[in-house]
Design a protein around this nucleic acid. Structure first.
Lengths: 346, 346
DNA sequence: TTATTTAATGTAATCGTTTGCATTTTATTT
DNA sequence: AAATAAAATGCAAACGATTACATTAAATAA
C-alpha cells in the first residue's frame, strides 16, 4: 500500500501543459483522444497525467459541456423486489454508456418526491426516470423537466392523467384480467380483492381489468370484500380479519401485491383455512417470497428487467438524439407484457 | 398543466442581476441568505429568480466550491436485504444534510468495483462508502481517496488487511460464536457449515467465531461438511446434496446467509428430513424470507439501520470537521452488535 | 524552389457561482 | 455639521475543461 500524502495538491490540465511545455488545449484534446493531436504528444500527455496523479474534473467539464452525465431516478423504495431488479438492470445498461444513476427513494411520500424532483432538477441531471409515489396525483413538480426539454420517463407507476412525458408501464390491465380469469376458471365466484389506492396507475388498471372480466362472467365483486389501501402486511392482516369476520367467506383473494398475498397465506394458515381447497390466492409481482412460502403463491410476473431494457433504450435514444426528443409526441407510451406464474395457491 | 416551452433559455444569476440592476455578487449572496444583504433586496432577488424560472447550477457552484455534495456508495447488490435497508437509512440521513447518494453496484465483481471506484473518484464525490465485493483482496483502487484525504468508509464487508480507511463492521466474530454456541446448546455435535469465501471479511470472522467456540466445546468441524463459496441458492443445493450423499449426516447446518438457509429448509423438505428434530438450521442476516418460510428460520440480525446511522454519523463528522479527518488515525474502527433471532429451525 | 494542402498546436473566451477586497451608502456618534 | 462606524453592494478574479478560430509547422504538389 503506497500511500503518499505529500503530493496532494490537485493537478489540472494546466499543470500537465506546463510540465510538458504545451498548451492546455492540447492536453485536453490529447486526453479526449481528439484525432487532431499527434500520437506522440497524446502519449506524452497521458503519461504525464498519470505521473502527476491527474484526475479529470467532471464538475468543470459538466459546466462547460452543460451535461452532467448523471441520470436521476426516483423510486418508491429500493427494497421492493420489482424496483431492485429494475434498478440493477437499468444501471448496468447506463454504466456502459458512461452515465451514472442517482437513485432516490420517495418512501411513497408525495412531499419527498417533490423535494427529490427539485433537487435533481437543480443537480442538472441529464434525464429523469420516475416511478411515482402511491398518492401522487399532481405532477407539476416535474414541469421543469418538461419545460426545459429534459428527457423524463415514467415507468410502472405512471401518471393517470395526461402528462407530456414518456411512459413505459406494465400491462396492469391485462394482469387484472389474467388474475380474474384464472380465478373464474378455477370456479370462484366469491372473490375478495385487496388493492392499492386507485390514485396509483397500476392499481387502477389492475382493478379495471379485474372488474371487466368479472362483469363478463357475471360475477360481482362484493363491496365489503374490496380494499383500496397501502399494501403493507399490517393493512393486509386487518383487511383479512374483516373479510373473514362475517358469515359468508370468499373462495378466493386477489392481492395486488405479494406482500399482501404472503399475509393472506399466513392468515389462512393461522385460521386453519385450507389453500387452495377452501381459499385460492393470487398475488402480483412475483416477489421471491411468493415462491418460498408454503404453499407457494400464484402470482403475476411484471418482468422488471424487460422494463428496464425498454427504459434504457428509450432513454439513451432521447439523450443521443435531439430529433427523437422533438418528435417524441407520438409514440410516447409503451406497454410491457405480464405473465402469470402458476403455483400452489390456485 | 401549464407547460410553456418558449421561455426555455436557462437563466443565470447574471440575468437576475441585470433585470434588477444589481451585481451578480449581490444576487448570489441574496440567494444564499448571506446576512450582508438587506432584507429588501433579498426578497426582490428571490422573487425575480422565481419569475425568471431560475434554477441553481450545481455544476458551477461545485466547481467553485470544490464540493460536489455527492456521496458515493458501492454495494455488492442492492437486492440484498441488508444493503437495501442500509441504503434507505443512510440516504434518509444524508438527504437532511443536503447530500445526495450515488448508489452503485459491483455485482460482486472486483473489476466492476475498480471501475466504479475510479468513476466516483473522477466524479469528485465528497466521500465514498463501500461494502466490498466477495473477492476483493487488493484495495489499491481506493488509494486515490486516501491520498487526497477524501473520507472513505468501509462497512459490513471491509478490508481484511490493514488499510488506512474508516471501518464500521458488524460483529461477525460474535455472530459466529452465537450461532455455534446455540447449536451446541441444542446438543448438536455434527455440524455442517456453508460459508462465503474467506477472502471476505464477514465470512472469515464468522468462521473464526464458529471454530473458536466449537474448539472450546471439543466439537470438530468435518472438512467434508465445510463449504466456502458464493452463497447462491444453486451452490447451496449442490453443497446440500453432497452433504447428504454420504453415510453419516449432520445434525445441524450453519448457513452464513439466509439464501442458503432457505435452500437448506427447502432441501430438507424435499428429502423428508424433519426440522428441527432431525436437522437444525441457523442462517444469517434476518432476511424477510427467513421468517416467511416454514418452518421460520433462526438467524442472526445484523441491524442494518443501526449500521447506517453509525456510518452517517461518522461520515458527516468527517465531512464537516477537518480536524476529525486529520486526527482520524485513532478510533478508525467500530463494531456494531448482532443479535440472534430464534425461530423454529433450532 | 515556391505554392498549396494538411497536420499539429496555440489563443482566448466561455460555462455560472462564489468571495476577498474594495467602495458606496446609510446610520450613529460627538 | 462633521466624523466615525456600520451596513449594503460592487468589482473582478478565480474554479478547470472545452472549443471555435487562429497560427505555425510539416508535407505534398506544381
Amino acid at each position: 500500500m503506497k500511500i503518499d500524502k505529500n503530493e496532494n495538491s490537485e493537478k489540472s490540465i494546466v499543470d500537465i501543459a506546463k510540465a510538458l511545455g504545451v498548451s492546455a488545449a492540447t492536453v485536453s484534446r490529447a486526453l479526449n483522444d481528439n484525432p487532431r493531436i499527434s500520437e506522440a504528444t497524446r502519449k506524452r500527455v497521458k503519461e504525464k497525467a498519470i505521473e502527476l496523479g491527474y484526475r479529470h474534473n467532471s464538475m468543470a467539464s459538466s459546466l462547460r459541456n452543460k451535461k452532467s452525465k448523471i441520470i436521476g431516478l426516483i423510486v418508491p423504495r429500493i427494497s421492493m423486489y420489482f424496483h431492485a431488479v429494475f434498478i440493477t438492470a437499468l444501471q448496468n445498461r447506463l454504466q456502459d454508456e458512461g452515465y451514472s444513476l442517482m437513485v432516490c427513494q420517495s418512501n411513497d411520500s408525495v412531499a419527498v418526491e417533490q423535494k427529490l424532483a427539485n433537487t435533481l432538477y437543480s443537480s442538472r441531471v441529464d434525464a429523469l426516470v420516475v416511478s411515482l409515489a402511491l398518492y401522487t396525483e399532481d405532477y407539476s413538480h416535474f414541469d421543469g423537466f418538461i419545460n426545459r426539454g429534459i428527457p423524463l420517463i415514467f415507468y410502472d407507476r405512471v401518471p393517470t392523467k395526461d402528462y407530456p412525458a414518456h411512459i413505459i408501464q406494465g400491462d396492469d390491465y391485462r394482469g387484472g384480467t389474467i388474475a380474474g380469469n384464472h380465478l373464474i376458471e378455477m370456479g370462484c365466484r366469491k372473490i375478495a380483492y385487496i388493492s392499492g389506492p386507485l390514485s396509483c396507475s397500476i392499481y387502477k388498471e389492475r382493478t379495471e381489468g379485474l372488474k371487466d372480466v368479472l362483469k363478463k362472467a357475471k360475477v360481482t365483486l362484493a363491496k365489503k370484500w374490496c380494499f383500496y389501501q397501502e399494501l403493507t402486511a399490517e393493512n393486509a392482516w386487518n383487511s383479512l380479519r374483516q373479510i373473514f369476520a362475517g358469515e359468508e367467506t370468499p373462495e378466493a383473494i386477489f392481492a395486488s401485491n405479494d406482500t399482501t398475498a404472503v399475509a393472506a397465506v399466513e392468515f389462512a394458515r393461522e385460521q386453519g383455512i385450507k389453500i387452495p381447497q377452501e381459499l385460492k390466492i393470487i398475488g402480483y409481482s412475483n416477489d421471491p417470497r411468493a415462491s418460498i412460502i408454503s404453499p407457494p403463491i400464484t402470482t403475476i410476473d411484471q418482468h422488471p428487467d424487460e422494463m428496464a431494457h425498454r427504459v434504457a433504450y428509450k432513454l439513451l435514444n432521447l439523450l443521443k438524439d435531439k430529433y427523437a426528443r422533438e418528435n417524441a409526441d407520438t409514440n410516447r407510451k409503451e406497454i410491457v407484457p405480464v405473465t402469470m406464474v402458476r403455483r400452489m395457491t390456485t
